[in-house]
Design a protein around this nucleic acid. Structure first.
Length: 871
RNA sequence: GCCGGUGUGGCGAAACUGGUAGACGCAGCAGACUCAAAAUCUGCCAUGGGAAACCAUGUGUCGGUUCGACUCCGACCACCGGCACCA
């Protein structure tokens, strides 16, 4: 055996052994219960980042561990290959997105392979492959047939200078990122998927997913946001009827119908027909409506912007009292939500309250406070105003509890044909149309006489031309005659293709199904999907907790309904891994924009007492600003290239550092010293095996002939074996598993001894060390297992069972507390009864000192652990 | 603004079901080895007091429940993730 640990040689040898033996190719007919382990596939951005390394190491540790438990494991990998960054790269370099994407895939695949991941590469797929995205198109057409997909208008960010639709990411402070022009909202026709029809099912099924983190289930339930309420029609008053030349009603949705008699105005969105009609004859109002149309469509911006409004001069009638109520246009009412109109009850809703105060609208108290917190609502706002209570000032509905009042008022409205109870979801239908080139074409043909015609199945896939280069001025497909020109499938006349492509969330909503049968040419999926699904463990970033996971659940449910797959829920267990962070340093020169410096180029000194930090550039000692920790990102120049770590220390060191430094769900702070520490531990493991093996083959273990020191080591080894299995297999935490093996190695180092019994014990302890570490650092373990004298390669070995006899011990230590404070320790025979522990504790010298002759009021004994004496 | 999370030594963390707070590692300090350095090995390492034994304090802040609270409850503060066209 070589004395020096040489990761480069070891890792290459291990990887070619695995490859030669096809060790990781998954086979549906192999024995063992299936285990489908999936990590979220990467966007091929160019290079792997540390978040990927963390994600895929977690998946690989689980995969390798489960193989050792006898499971038939599938761990696939692919590429989420469509998306905006490819278009941005094209604009910067003039390279077609297709070529940029495929080059990136080739490079990143090499990086993934060098990490030693036990992936079945025979199932690799990229979502930009026509043989993949044809099935997006195929299922979209099935959804059209079922009415799950439909077309209506939606609001987008519009750059008036570039004449193009902008992604939210391309809107910076309300302006286009390239032109700096003020962004406008614009309504355009788009395709939607009716996910709201599945809102209840998606919400209810969360209860059937105990393997999901509670926080993710809570976020999804809140996102879907079921609320019960009442649709209420406010008939138009005479002025409105006169303006529009017909009668009608303004419909609102409210969860607080009990406050209906407190309505003092109604508010509509700027795009609401009533607002537009009123603005036609009112220049000031038209200007305000225009103002509302400027700015971003993002909810976070809308929710934090100043609440503004303006009277339309129009009125509607209160549906029960008949009183006239003014109609306002307000920037906080959104056309996309509910009816685009709300009834306002300033006395019992905080937002209406602020608005009413600003525009001098009256308050009308209609709920009596159950806690007596107020009599009459008046400024300033207190939370009690918004609570449920008993109705007052509400005519015949006085004196009802809020819930009863909602029922009574809803019934009265229904009797007049002016209202109905209804369930409303916060969730909105999924708009999938993108006015972008690098995506899956929506398979629709626009015909002058037949309208929007679906592309027939036999003409699929609608291929995306791969030679176009976007330039920032809109979708190049719209200017490509070769793509646009086609015949109407219905009448045969000349027609135009739809140029919108699909949201990339569509691509990632079913790739996990395709991995089960990636070579299937005739169908979207086949019976192998029923074998592998559901995914037994899905691993990915917490940032995907809502959108991706909800869309994937929805899409799978639709495929289930169409009879394509047996499962309705795709992921039984979910691990949401935390982010990888690093320090951020920048400097803002007098001219120009902020410059970021990579942490490797900066010295950071933190004063322990003042907590002041000072950061200087290594090259010239000049000072830079320390911003603290943040996610590794290109824009902040604080990324660490995985290649540098693997080439310097090896993949095993990178993997060990990732797994040891933080629990998987928490954010992980990058540390060069931590990487050194991980490498040091691997060298220690290597040396421990080297020292042991150099002394010759160890004799067989005779458990009955061990000295106390041997029995101690054997106990630690078997405790470690149990702990590591529990940590990885049940708790899914890896940092404590590694810590346990480190303790075992420390114990081996202390053990010494050169008797036959000692050497046999050490052989077993080292074998357990290697077995426990092998899912985490597979290359070094592959080599060490052979050095320890095994012929069967490590990846074919099973996990070892704990020997219960090795764990037995004669006596245990029990701590003694007086009034909950630690005062002493006693040694007792293991299995000692409660009163034995009690007597021993009361006789302990340290305890007697604190008792000071007093009689204990109470003694609490926790078996095998602790005695607490209360005086 | 709304939804979800996190907060423990100089630093990353551990304490799983309410039962010894700080396992394991990083950094640091001291020693051994070395001509020397690196590497390696050994010891120390929450804070205050004390020569020590030991005592007191200590898990973001304030309050509560309990024989006993990092863990449960209430209020608050700070930071992080998501908010529907980044993926």
């Amino acid at each position: 055996m070589q004395e020096r640990y040489d990761p480069a040689a070891i890792e290459q040898a291990a990887q070619s052994d695995w490859e030669a033996q096809q060790a990781h190719v998954a086979d549906e007919s192999a024995p063992g219960e299936k285990f489908y382990c999936l990590s979220m596939f990467p966007y091929p951005s160019g290079r792997l980042h540390m978040g990927h390394v963390r994600n895929y190491t977690i998946g690989d540790v689980l995969s390798r561990f489960m193989r050792m438990q006898g499971r038939n494991v599938l761990q696939p990998m692919g590429w989420d290959a469509f998306g905006l960054p490819a278009e941005n790269a094209a604009m910067a370099n003039g390279v077609p997105p297709a070529r940029w994407t495929r080059d990136n895939i080739a490079y990143m695949k090499g990086q993934l392979k060098s990490l030693g991941l036990s992936i079945d590469w025979s199932r690799e797929l990229a979502t930009c492959d026509p043989e993949y995205y044809r099935w997006n198109q195929w299922l979209f057409l099935r959804m059209l047939e079922k009415g799950i997909a439909y077309r209506r208008t939606g609001v987008v960010n519009w750059d008036p200078v570039d004449q193009t639709v902008l992604a939210n990411e391309q809107v910076i402070d309300g302006r286009g990122w390239r032109t700096g022009a003020l962004v406008e909202k614009r309504e355009i026709p788009m395709y939607y998927l009716r996910i709201t029809a599945y809102a209840d099912a998606l919400r209810d099924a969360l209860d059937t997913l105990p393997g999901w983190p509670e926080r993710v289930r809570a976020m999804q339930a809140n996102w879907i946001g079921r609320s019960e309420g009442v649709d209420i029609d406010f008939p138009w008053a005479d002025d409105t009827v006169a303006l529009l030349g017909k009668s009608g009603a303004l419909r609102v949705f409210t969860t607080r119908a009990d406050t209906l008699f407190g309505v003092t105005y109604v508010a509509v969105a700027a795009e609401h027909p009533l607002a537009l009609a009123a603005a036609a004859g009112n220049a000031a109002l038209a200007e305000f409506v225009d103002e509302c149309r400027r700015g971003s469509t993002m909810e976070a911006d809308l929710a934090t912007q100043e609440k503004k409004g303006m009277a339309t001069g129009l009125h509607v009638c209160h549906p029960l009292s008949g009183e006239q109520v003014p109609v306002y246009v307000a920037n906080y009412v959104l056309m996309g939500y509910g009816e685009g109109a709300v009834m306002a009850v300033p006395a019992h809703d905080e937002r209406d309250f602020e608005f009413a105060l600003k525009y001098n609208l009256p308050l009308r108290t209609v709920i009596a406070s159950p806690s007596g917190a107020y009599d009459q609502v008046q400024a300033p706002w207190i939370d009690a105003y918004g609570e449920l209570g008993t109705t007052v000032n509400s005519g015949q509905f006085n004196g009802l509890a809020s819930a009863a009042a909602v029922d009574a008022i809803a019934a009265a409205l229904a009797a007049k044909g002016l209202g109905d109870k209804r369930v409303q979801f916060r969730l909105r239908d999924w708009g999938i149309s993108r006015q972008r080139y690098w995506g899956c074409p929506i398979p629709i043909i626009h015909c002058a006489s037949c309208g929007d015609v679906p592309v027939p199945d036999e003409q699929l896939p609608v291929r995306l031309p791969e030679d176009l280069v976007p330039d920032g001025s809109g979708n190049p497909l719209a200017r490509s005659e070769a793509f646009l020109a086609c015949k109407c499938p219905r009448c045969g006349a000349d027609a135009r293709r739809e140029t919108d492509t699909m949201d990339t969330f569509v691509d990632s909503s079913w790739y996990f199904l395709r991995f089960a049968c990636a070579d299937q040419a005739r169908a979207m999926v086949d019976g192998r999907a029923d074998y592998w699904l559901p995914v037994d463990h899905y691993i990915g970033g917490i940032e995907h907790a809502i959108l991706h996971l909800l869309y994937a659940r929805f899409w799978t449910r639709v495929m289930h309904e169409l009879g394509l797959v047996k499962v309705a829920e795709p992921f039984s267990n979910l691990l949401t891994q935390g982010m990888v962070l690093n320090h951020i340093f920048h400097r803002t020169p007098a001219t120009g924009r902020r410059e970021f410096f990579n942490p490797t180029d900066v010295d950071l000194v933190v004063d322990a007492t003042t907590r002041q930090s000072r950061a200087t550039l290594k090259r010239d000692g000049s000072e830079v600003v320390y911003e603290g920790l943040g996610t590794m990102s290109k824009s902040r120049n604080n990324g660490v290239d995985p290649n540098i770590i693997t080439s310097q220390f090896g993949a095993d060191t990178a993997r060990l550092f990732m797994m040891f430094t933080a629990p998987p769900e928490q954010s992980l702070e990058w540390s060069d010293d931590g990487v050194q520490g991980a490498n040091r531990f691997l060298r220690r493991v290597w040396k421990a095996v080297f020292d042991h093996v150099s002394a010759g083959a160890a004799p067989a273990l005779d458990a009955a002939a061990l000295e106390p020191a041997d029995r101690d080591l054997r106990r630690v080894a078997h405790l470690t074996l149990g702990k590591v299995k529990d940590d990885i297999g049940r708790r899914r935490v890896f940092n404590t598993a590694v810590a346990a093996v480190m303790e075992l190695l420390n114990a081996i180092g202390r053990h010494g001894g050169s008797t036959d019994a000692a050497r046999a014990t050490r052989q077993e302890a080292l074998e357990i060390t290697v077995l426990c570490l092998s899912p985490i650092v597979p290359h070094i373990c592959h080599a060490l297992w052979a050095e320890l004298g095994h012929v069967t390669p490590l990846h074919r070995e099973r996990w070892r069972e704990v020997d219960a006899a090795a764990l037995e011990q004669d006596s245990i230590e029990v701590v003694v507390q007086v009034n909950g404070k630690l005062r002493g320790r006693i040694t007792a025979p293991s299995g000692a009864a409660d009163d034995v522990l009690r007597e021993l504790a009361l006789a302990d010298a340290a305890v007697l000192r604190f008792l000071e002759g007093q009689t204990p009021r109470k003694v609490i004994v926790v078996r095998g652990k602790l005695v607490n004496i209360v005086i």
